[in-house]
Design a protein around this nucleic acid. Sequence first.
DNA 1: CTGAAAGCGCTTACAG
DNA 2: CTGAAAGCGCTTACAG
Lengths: 337, 337
Amino acid sequence: MTRLARQPSLIRDVAERAGVSPATVSRVLTGSAAVREPTRARILAAIDELRYRRNRVASNLRRQQVQMIGLVISDIENPHFTQMVRAAEDAAYMQGYRVLLCNTDEDPAKQRDYLGVLAAERVAGAIISPTEADAPEIGELIDLGTFVVAFDRAVADRRADAVLPANTEGARRGTEHLLGGGHESIGFVGGPAGIQTATERLLGYEEAMSAAGLQPRIAQGNFRVEGGRRAAEELIREGATALLVANNMMTVGVLQALRQGGRRVSADVALVSFDDPPWAELTDPPLTTLAQPVRAMAASAMELLMQRLEGRGKRRQCRVFDFELRHRNSCCYPKES
Amino acid sequence: MTRLARQPSLIRDVAERAGVSPATVSRVLTGSAAVREPTRARILAAIDELRYRRNRVASNLRRQQVQMIGLVISDIENPHFTQMVRAAEDAAYMQGYRVLLCNTDEDPAKQRDYLGVLAAERVAGAIISPTEADAPEIGELIDLGTFVVAFDRAVADRRADAVLPANTEGARRGTEHLLGGGHESIGFVGGPAGIQTATERLLGYEEAMSAAGLQPRIAQGNFRVEGGRRAAEELIREGATALLVANNMMTVGVLQALRQGGRRVSADVALVSFDDPPWAELTDPPLTTLAQPVRAMAASAMELLMQRLEGRGKRRQCRVFDFELRHRNSCCYPKES
DNA sequence: CTGAAAGCGCTTACAG
DNA sequence: CTGAAAGCGCTTACAG
């Protein structure tokens, strides 16, 4: 395997050229100690001439720390996570941390695998939206010294901080909004069993329906497009005149099902959808959604991580964020404020 | 800074417990040499009991290779890159490589910075969609032994492989499609100057217009939503009855401008848009687009990288992919096949 | 098949 | 302010 086009220069080469010891070069590189000006200038010049690039792998090993954050999410193609990753990457970049992207596809095995990778890489921190909240690998990662923040969904390990949405409350508000529109046959396009987000949103829906003395109608989706389509077809067949959809991916499927079935959004079937993807206002009609402040939540998660990394913040923190009901036109008669 | 909740066990601990040398433990870890079965079993047991996790940082330093791929793109929130990242991550995961995400925001300084990071981390490979095609850092990265594949846009360094879209040809076809619809006043919502994608798409548009003996009408956007909105407003003001839009982000802005100006897509202004984001068929009417096989392109880029990493494939490769015109309903009179 | 020893490229007490 | 030396946790010729 011919790998190196040119032998990269080492700290030793720089030291030699500048007529100092490697230790001194390292000092100007890290800024860990003062170096006399003329010496410093010679070193900087040597670095430049030799095109020296410090080897981070060696540096990380010696310093026993890796400036890297693992982002464990189910799918980057879900706009919810796309936005989260974007905001997290921004914050990480500003703090000098790198981002390792880990897509789990809601597959517990893949999640375990990736958690193992993060442990092996000895990353400084991880933001995890768990598929399997009680995977033992999460605890092992924390044992190793990695700080963990649960995002979107809680993890079982009590040492992890958390940034969570107020799902139950959000689902209740969404349902009440549809109830306020005069609907009685409101269906719920739910997520997969076992996923916290899905369970909590279902609960809020059931509470609101029960409070209104109405019969809940639930079809289980899988947080993906086809699952949403199938669930919507089922609920429409059963006569639902309104739908609360538990995430934005399934909403795409719901819209496909409605279009295919020749039903108009709002006029025939009212819609309130969780998440607020960029396309929510491009559909016909624009969608009424339950929006999470995803960017703020991601920034918050990074902030918690940074606090830990700086040794501040002893107690476990759990921050909960409310949904915002964005009134657009997929529901008739918006009576709520 | 209290970092470690528990001292992680080392290869030395495992060796001690299994009654062998660290070298032998390493052999079963890497599978680099045969180890007698009973010994091997004892080692595996010790690894399990001590919850040993190999330290990849040390391993990487010693082996002089890092199983990591850098993904340098302008913005993960652009669905074009979201899809690319997803496909690349998939392929990388299957091959046992990690993915480092680097958003440049079309900012040359940020790109340079991130290229420096990749060099310092000594990543095995990088897929780069350059903002600055001739940044010297690209050559330096290659000098260091990192294999580079240009994605979406070429890089100046001739040692990099490339996976590119046939932009000029695509723009020509999009323009001809609008011409075929009977339009004569066709505007082009272009991208930022200096970005190859933008330049080539502009060229294809100009060629098609010139071949039809028509006057080109160009408004420069910036590949972002607001740029698209401004450009569309300008072109509509000048009387354009059809628009070719150079990327999907700007299309969002174009749709906003049309809606705000009270113009209907297709009926008032025909639209063909580059890229085929997931929401293209959710708009009213669904959008006719020029779709790239993004997943296949990303897979192709990873394949080129893997070939290099395995020492195969000597000659520089450049693979060009055609656009597919997806006929939907944002153009009247689709005469083309 | 297994072990002792060297070394990957840095950083950091320790001494001066 | 600077240098010599040790060591981070692995892997890999080399020897047996």
